[in-house]
Structures are given as structure tokens and as C-alpha cells.
Design a protein around this nucleic acid. Structure first.
Lengths: 176, 176
DNA sequence: TCGAACCTTGACGTTCACGTCAAGGTTAGG
DNA sequence: CCTAACCTTGACGTGAACGTCAAGGTTCGA
């Protein structure tokens, strides 16, 4: 782990705390991906990091955020990269809007930009919610099965029998 | 679409309404899968339909249920077939238990079988819940972003400006 | 009994999402 | 300026999850 001794140790230029762009191995480690995956995601258009003079990829904070988002979508939600592409597109637009927002003083324009952002986030939420709703249905079905089984046990226990077998009777952390 | 005119049109034998086993194309259409997928799922051990004399696969109601379960896990939850295998194994055990349950009169034994079933269902629920929790987190993050945007708009609107642009201000179906 | 429509088991092809070299350029401490 | 450690672009390999023939057996109404 010879992480080259961090040259350019924050010149403290004042306002913009640009924390120095990372190279591919660093982001990969940070986010929990392989360099191959990161490059692949770029290949399929999920992100476009800056380049150094010698054509090294340089990732800024925003890229980091993006990669974390992608990983979450992939691992946690089980989306395909194609589906992720849709969601990420909205993320990208969000970033562009951020810049546009800062670039103008016109309140009407700012308002419009923010509203566009809201619309995009709403779309993301809808996609996620749809998936969650289906998961919820499945959980509901499982719970129904569980209840049926539980009532059987109740019935038997009600009509005596009493074995010494003890088991946890609660449903798993009554969440969801 | 020449669905062969349903021979063996329910002999009405009385108690067991065995609705006649289906052949692979029929189940595929019914469940919404390709025959290839159905065969593949059998290949990887996700189910084991009965066979006719001439070695045709014959699917009963239970197999149908199983396939629907698999499809839901795959499409709705985004699980891999490997993960599905785990969940389905519990389903299979459930089926076996059902038979064992009916086969005995001993209440103690019946109770034990039911408890085993509960444990299995609980495991399924846990798996699903874990995935859902992560989805929920992502939705929460998206919502946070939305709120931030919304407050920006509020701010602008508060300090006048009033454009004629109208947009839906509610979060998408406040569910989840 | 015959034939259309179905089924079977191979076996090879394909797409996705990367893994894994290979051959060479880049960076930066010493 | 040298060199270890990093990076680059190919390019080929791989496992999962099927798609897609091919060659032949099975069903069943006519």
C-alpha cells in the first residue's frame, strides 16, 4: 500500500477547497469498486472524468458521488447498468443545473432550474418506489404464509400437546 | 395459436380437482417466461417438474407457483439465480413440509414441522427486507435532494418573482 | 395410421459485466 | 535523469442467463 506521499498538499488558496483530484485506483478503493469496473462504467457512458496531461483519468468529488450512486443502484437495488444509465442521466442533469443555477442571478431562471431538478428527482424516486412496492408485495405474501403457519402452531398449542421445543415466535424485526 | 383442444376435459372425479398438468409452452406463456428460461431454471436446480411417458415435462399448480415466485424474484427484486436458489430452497422445503404435515397425526410432529416452516419463511422475509431497507435508504437520499431543491423554490417564491410556470409541487405519491 | 404441432436433448451463439494479461506511456521521489 | 509505481489502450477470457438452431422423439385429432 505505497500511497505516493500526497504531493500538492492543499495550497489553501482560500475559497474553493478543491480537495485534489483522485486517480483511478484511489477512487476504486474509496468507493469499493475495481478499476476495471470504473473504466467500464465510463465506457458505457455512466461518467466522464477529467484527464491529466498524460491522459490519466482524474476524478473529482462529483465523480466520487456518481460512482457511489452507481454502486448503490447496482448492489442494493439490483438495477442493470442500462437502467442505471437512466437514473444517472437525471443525476448528470442535476449537476449541470447546479452550475447553471450559480451562473445566473435571475430569480425566474433559478426557479425554473430548481423546478426541473425537482422533476428529475421525482422521476428517480418513482423508479425506486416502483421496485420497492414490488418487493413489499413479496414480503407481504411471505408474511401471509408465515401467519398461516403460525396459526397452525397456535391451534396445536391451544389443544394442548406442549412440547419442550422452544423457538422464537416473533416475526423478524417487525419492519417493512 | 392452435392450443390443442384440451383433451381430458376434467373427469370430475370428485374431491381432488387436479386441473391437468401443463406442458412447457403453456406454463411459459402463463407465467410470462420463455421455454428456454424454464428449462434453464430446471437445469440449475430451481425446480423439477414431473415427466410423462415420452419424457415430456409436466407442470402442476405447485410448479406454476414456483415459477411465478422465481420470476418475481428476478424481475421485481433483481436477485441473481444463485440468490433465488436460496430462497427457492426454502420454498421447496415448505412444500415437503406440507406433505409431511398431512402425513402425520402426531401433534408434536406437526408442530415441529410448522415451526420449521416459520423459520424458513422468516429467513426469506429477512432477505427481502434487507434489500428493501437499502432501497429505502436510497429513496430517502433522493427525497433529501428534493427537499433542498424545493426549499430553493420556496425561497425564491417567498421573495416574490411569481412566474406563470405551474408545476406539481407534491412529492410523488407520498408512499414508501 | 398419419401428420401437424408439440416435445426432447445437445450444442453453439450472444449479451452483460466485468477479469486478466500484454505492451507501452506517465509521474514524481531520490 | 532514473526508476518504481502508477496509468493508458487494446484485446481476449469468463460466468451468468439465456437465444437459437439442429436432429430426432411424442401426442393426438382426423
Amino acid at each position: 500500500m505505497t500511497t505516493r506521499p500526497t504531493t500538492t498538499a492543499a495550497p489553501a488558496t482560500g475559497s474553493a477547497p478543491q480537495p485534489r483530484p483522485l486517480r483511478i485506483q484511489e477512487v476504486a478503493a474509496e468507493v469499493g469498486l475495481t478499476t476495471r469496473s470504473v473504466r467500464y462504467y465510463e465506457e458505457v457512458g455512466l461518467l466522464a472524468p477529467a484527464r491529466s496531461g498524460g491522459d490519466y483519468r482524474l476524478y473529482d468529488a462529483e465523480d466520487l458521488e456518481r460512482l457511489r450512486f452507481i454502486k448503490a443502484l447496482r448492489d442494493d437495488a439490483g438495477f442493470s447498468l442500462a437502467e442505471i444509465g437512466q437514473l444517472v442521466e437525471d443525476e448528470a442533469a442535476r449537476a449541470r443545473n447546479k452550475a447553471r443555477f450559480k451562473a445566473t442571478d435571475d430569480p425566474a431562471e433559478r426557479r425554473a432550474i430548481a423546478l426541473d431538478g425537482i422533476a428529475r428527482v421525482d422521476r428517480q424516486i418513482e423508479t425506486l418506489r416502483a421496485k420497492m412496492a414490488r418487493l413489499r408485495t413479496m414480503i407481504g405474501e411471505a408474511r401471509a404464509r408465515r401467519e398461516k403457519l403460525a396459526s397452525r402452531v397456535e391451534m396445536i398449542d391451544g389443544g394442548e400437546v406442549r412440547t419442550h421445543v422452544h423457538v422464537d415466535r416473533r416475526p423478524p424485526t417487525s419492519n417493512a
